[in-house]
């Protein structure tokens, strides 16, 4: 389980330089796949408020991980640490790379965050900053827009698109450079129910094609069990539940097995036993 000696391992040390060794981080399934990233006793405090309290987590490459928790439980902080937007106060965060694409980690935010002054195609090209330019970038971004079903909107301004379409453009931007890890910070939270289901299906299909490691932060339990291989529940800065969802895909909404797992997680979240 301590198979962390990969070629291009990037190690992010805590700011105080302390090397906290976690006793044993739990990995779901026996990882035939290499580890995509590991948290080793990661703690993050803001002032005297500790948001994450010693998180240990190993995620194998290609896994679809969902992170659930109540507001303010630290799940967004976890994502910000993973994407390098924030540094741990102590503990280690090890992000692996697959050689071919480096350790490229992309994040999709709750808001699309498109540049309103760039047309849709140009916005997708932002995802290729420092990777491809000019014709090559244009062709790649158009190809990715095709994947999300918006190839015909490449020349539109973002302001004329619907909320769901904007979020699809943001997805295309995040994936155009074929990231190793894709972090999703409640990207479907602001969409209406139907658009949400469409987006879930789209996300699953593209994930199955590209096989990146997905980390989806959400507060929608049904979304988590529909999409993820594994669900973790964070409670007061700690992993309170770590559950594999070994169901075959595509998963049918409202199936008995999904409902059972959903109930299990909800029970834990609402604090009734668990």
């Amino acid at each position: 389980m301590t198979v962390l000696a990969f070629d291009k391992t990037i190690k992010i040390q805590s700011s105080d330089g302390a090397q906290t060794q976690a006793p044993q981080a739990r990995t779901s399934q026996v990882p035939a796949a290499p580890i995509a990233f590991s948290f080793r006793g990661v703690t993050r405090s803001f002032g005297d408020k500790t948001v994450l309290k010693g998180i240990d987590l190993d995620v194998p490459a290609g896994q679809f991980l969902a992170v659930i928790g109540k507001s303010g439980c630290g799940k967004s902080t976890l994502l910000r640490l993973l994407t390098g937007l924030d540094q741990p106060s102590s503990g280690d965060l090890i992000v692996n790379s697959d050689g071919e694409h480096g350790n490229r980690t992309r994040i999709m935010f709750q808001e699309p965050r498109l540049l309103p002054w760039n047309r849709v195609g140009r916005n997708v090209e932002v995802g290729l900053t420092g990777i491809a330019k000019g014709e090559e970038a244009r062709a790649k971004s158009l190809g990715m827009l095709e994947e999300v079903g918006l190839a015909d909107r490449a020349n539109e301004w973002p302001s004329v698109l619907s909320g769901g379409q904007r979020q699809r453009v943001a997805l295309a931007r995040a994936l155009v450079a074929h990231p190793f890890i894709l972090a999703l910070d409640e990207p479907l939270g602001a969409l209406d129910a139907l658009t949400r289901l469409e987006m879930q299906a789209l996300l699953e299909r593209i994930w199955q094609q590209q096989r990146f490691t997905a980390v989806l932060v959400t507060h929608d339990v049904s979304e988590a069990v529909t999409l993820a291989d594994r669900v973790i529940v964070i409670e007061e800065g700690r992993i309170a539940l770590d559950l594999d969802i070994p169901l075959p895909r595509p998963r049918r909404h409202g199936s008995a097995e999904l409902a059972r797992l959903e109930g299990l997680i909800l029970e834990r979240l609402l604090g009734k036993g668990g």
């Binding site: 994407t83 937007l85 992309r106």
Partner: peptide, 9 residues
């Protein structure tokens, strides 16, 4: 938020 996005990319 856009500036943060630019940094991430």
């Amino acid at each position: 938020q856009l500036i943060e996005m630019g940094r991430v990319y």
